[in-house]
Design a binder for these strands. Structure first.
Lengths: 233, 233, 233, 233
DNA sequence: AATGAATGAGATTTCATTCAT
DNA sequence: AATGAATGAAATCTCATTCAT
């Protein structure tokens, strides 16, 4: 919030990026005003427009930039050889580490997709598909080698990504667990999920599902509550 | 001076609720204007205030109402007795069914927490904690009985909820899978995850983790990209 | 500038129209701010948007409305029968009277065409063409009957309209001349112009043009002045 | 730190003048932004200030410069002796030629007077009065010699100038008519106008005016149209 | 002579909300 | 229960202008 006289160029740019990430992560893109952003950086609102053409472009720059970083980093980290388990472990460790290192960016890349205009959204979604495909390929590989036993690799891909990406919704640095700890725990859960069902099947436990359903099927009841105001006044 | 005349009371109320859910789920609370909402319903902006005191209250009503429904339904569906596996299966089936039945409400309850004012947020978070605790208790129970082998039940709780809640970000009715299908697939993954590590441990496979780390630890590189404007123009 | 509490509806609308006409005529569309307009009317800026969707639409409404009025009035005033001279006289009288009665609107319709967006411009230009055609037809008629002697009726149409429309650039009510007086003077000039050249030709005076050119042809010299700043400091 | 390096001084100056003329003629002074101007020229906004002190001064320079040119050229072209007809012919030929040669400048000098600040306006208006006086003097001279028959030389002055100046609102180089052609046509019309009424009077045709008025006087009806919004939506 | 980054004011437009009818 | 007109604040974005480099 320090106000520095004169031109600063790249320093200002980085300050805007940082402040923007934090504000968007906290309040959301739509709820962040450029007034807030400028105040946070310590410049006038109009000066922001030396760094982007409009608010939408700012968001897109943040997301696109992060996606590019993410892909580059993932490619550098991923094993192209080795067992599927080794590769999945590697993927998970990377993903956890990345989420812990850049929780705001990761969060925004999930939560603000809906704030992107159609063209920008298309560009980002394409990159995301790419990312998902990399995980999907590992799972397929593992199924082929018999390492993994998954009923539906597409669902598993989405489930694993949701599980891992959830981290950035609650992770706070300095918490109970270190990055290492998180990596181990999540790797454990992901591997268990992937090796999955056959272990149970092998032990003949699929029936475990049956009894619960036998009791009575779960039902989602219709809305019963009166109206918007019910129970509020 | 009513134009088409015809006060419709409850019909209007339900129309507002529905339109609001859809608009918030699509654009987000902050990005939804009451002008849009009124237009969607086919009334004037001012008339909305016959149904809520202000925009924030409208959001809170939606979220709170849904949470009450959810809890009531969960309590009705949950087994208080039986094996942990049976109970977890039951929980998962319920959760999946609920997400499939009311994807918008569920999504909003996750994504718009940050739009709630402190007091309202506190109320909702308390309910959510309650929900998490119900899952947590099942996991703890399973660990006590030896059915589940989890390194960290708190993490597992969060991971499972993230995994299941992710459904509402991509689920579209009429897709490839039926509710039943989804329930089976996700129950399989959740159970595998919960039974988890020991299966691997039992087979002496924990080492599977080691080699990958042995190769070289994953690293999250620092941001290298030029700046906001880099590669955009 | 009086501030009236409560809603006024049509009163406000007319006040906006009047204030808008005056401001645009004085400062031009681009230079008129909606802040000024609202202040003049005595309402808040935002309230203006109960009366138009945006500034451009406001301008278009003013111009289009005036054009419609003008055409209706012209059609009511014009003679479809009678000599070309009688009809041209009639046209001129009407045009003068109209310009004297509504100088601001007329002026804006000429001067702010460039401020219209393409679609709006096209609509207005079409109406204007129509107006010009009505005069053109009278001139053609007069040429056919031998009443008028014009080298080029298209040029004459433009010249007469420019001449008459010029009135609204200097006319101030309460000046030296009454509407009647203006009508007589301009009718005289327009008729003289239209009867035109043959009078001169009849008297064999076309040569009058020659001597002047004989002396030496007029030349438009190239810009000689140094630069923007020359002779200013 | 100059990018393409190469200070171009006078070249830049002329480029700014040209771009400014074109932008102001097209969009108007108020609607032209210095950003646009700089972009058109291919320099940064700040660099413009090496060529003028502010936007207003830029406009004044353009207008004043043109007026000085115009006067110098007119004085060089005008006949101080000869018949009034010869002098009026000469004036008209000059005026037409000048408008055809510099339509943008001429147009701006008429249309952007209102954008001048009081002092600047006063200076320009004085020059313009001078110009009008030169035409007025010719007309007076012709009336004295009996060459012209005008009811009101002041009105005639304004009418002729409006007629001639109208040219720059529609003239496009390469159109149907050459400069020569335009000069002849407009000279014809101006002379006819100036010789004017007496020809008709001589033929006893003043009555031509009467019948039309006899039928019924033209009336300018009051505004009837609903309002701003009428017939638009 | 030109740049690039800044300013501070002001532009148009939208917002949630109020209230007499 | 609904309207239509209003408010006052705040939104995004553009403006002319300055100035160190």
């Amino acid at each position: 919030m320090a106000r520095i006289a004169g031109s600063s160029g790249p320093r200002t740019e980085e300050a805007i990026r940082r402040a923007g990430l934090s504000l968007i992560a906290t309040h959301g893109y739509a709820a962040m005003s450029l007034r807030q952003l400028a105040a946070e950086v310590g410049i006038q609102q109009g000066s922001l427009y030396n760094y982007f053409r409009n608010k939408q472009e700012f968001l897109f720059d943040l997301i696109r930039g992060h996606m590019l970083d993410l892909h580059a980093a993932l490619d550098a980290a991923l094993l192209s050889e080795g067992s599927a388990e080794a590769r999945l472990t590697r993927f998970t460790e990377f993903h956890v580490a990345y989420h812990v290192a850049r929780p705001q960016e990761v969060f925004i890349c999930y939560s603000e997709l809906r704030s992107l205009e159609p063209d920008n959204l298309a560009a980002v979604v394409a990159m995301r598909r790419d990312y998902e495909r990399k995980l999907g390929e590992i799972l397929d590989h593992g199924r082929a080698t018999g390492e993994f036993h998954l009923a539906d690799t597409r669902m598993a891909t989405l489930a694993i990504l949701a599980m891992l990406s959830g981290i950035c919704t609650w992770y706070k640095p300095g918490g109970r667990l270190t990055t290492d700890g998180l990596q181990q725990i999540f790797t454990g859960m992901v591997l268990a999920l992937a090796r999955g069902e056959t272990q149970a099947l092998a032990r003949g436990e699929t029936q475990a599902l049956a009894p619960s359903e036998a009791v009575e099927p779960v039902a989602v009841p219709a809305r019963r509550r009166g109206g918007l105001r019910a129970g509020v006044g």
